[in-house]
Design a protein around this nucleic acid. Sequence first.
DNA 1: ATGTGC
Length: 503
Amino acid sequence: MTNRTFDADGVTLEQVREHVWEIPRTGDMRVPARVLASEALLEEISDDKTLEQLQNTTHLPGIANYAICMPDGHQGYGFPVGGVGAMDVETGCISPGSVGYDINCGVRMMRTSLTYSDLQDREEELVDSLFANIPSGLGGGGIVDGDVDTVEEILARGVDWALEHGHAVEDDLLHCEDEGMREEADPSKVSQKAKDRGKNQIGSLGSGNHFLEVQRVTDVFDAAVGEAYGLEEDQIVVLIHCGSRGLGHQTCNDYLRKIEQQHRGLLDKLPDKELAAAPAGSQLAEDYYGAMNAAINFAWVNRQVIMHRVRKVFERVFDRSWEDMEMELLYDVAHNIAKKEYHEVDVGPDGTPAVGDEVVGREERELYVHRKGATRAFPAGHPEVPKAYRDVGQPVIIPGSMGAGNYVLRGGENSMELTFGSTAHGAGRLMSRTQAKNEYWGGDVQQQLRDQDQIYVKAQSGATVAEEAPGVYKDVDEVVGVSDALGIGDKVARTFPVCNIKG
DNA sequence: ATGTGC
């Protein structure tokens, strides 16, 4: 039996098995590339430069096993959004473009004890109140009006800073990756310019695909895991999607420029200068890792401060205490990060990552796991899964479009073997922002969501609504179906929007 | 994503 193939523009993928497609090594590719997708999604993925970019990433030094594109993949800056690349910490590299401009863009979900009926006929009031109290849109203005010293502390301490300043409770830290603080953060490696941009953006959503959404749980697919996550049908939850704002953007930019200047030799060997990478062990690799971890802490504080403000908004609207409404953080996931983690990789005679004929065995290696538009999805039993969820696997939160709904998954049994413990991060764009604005008119999109689905959307800019219209996204059910079928992230629950605010 | 650019 011959395997099926898929011909895209300039590249042929071979099907390894259902939902697993491989671009074999040719030329200077260090490893093969894999796309995890149904044929329909692969068709969409092959529409833009995603596959070419994915192939390019296999040229990065020290990349292990294979470069991976998730079912929601689309083109990004150098490295595809929906991409995972794991590079050896001793012999590989770290690459800002493979983390993304929005360092620690991510999602958190907060539970409540409210049900959909508690909200009905209150939607307008709630969406207005959220919009009035949660800063959004481009530019400055956050919930906390900080100075550079505040930013320094946030960069070093993450959510611990929020706890000290009344924007968090102890329990919030226990339900966040790394308890909301990367120890390896080095605020001194974040530029003054980045800190200046961050100081008036503490607690702000930003623009683009960032949003805050009140949702109702429509389905619980796995009763036991649903119970462990505290989710049941008809329950109201709140989803917050945002990142590190101008601070992270500036940090990414700063290091891209430094790498271009200081590591020209490596850059000239790469097929795309947007993949600029600092060689493992170099001063710049260490500096970027310290700065990136600091920006990660900033983004966690950003989501934390927003979430805590949402509690206060609900208190005013429903005239009950947030504790009484059981507004507890379910989990916070980062989907634009690099992290040092240990994974089993194919190694050559010198013990470093290898492929093909050079492979002599499999060993645990420490890797910079780059997840850009990809979510960590560690399975049950993994020591890095917080205690509350260790028996069932870590929660994975997958936002769909504002008209389609969202998923909660749990890290699957096969994720460590197949994807360095990762799965998708969302529905994934189908078309560019420019194209979206030609196809849709914000006001019409808003009206339709309101009339057809009782979804209340409020935005700073109509253009943003057009850019984020449901039709510009892939089918989130299809994306999640692939994750579930591969056993990298299993379906637990589905939610549907009620109120949505955005930039 | 982004005080919407290389």
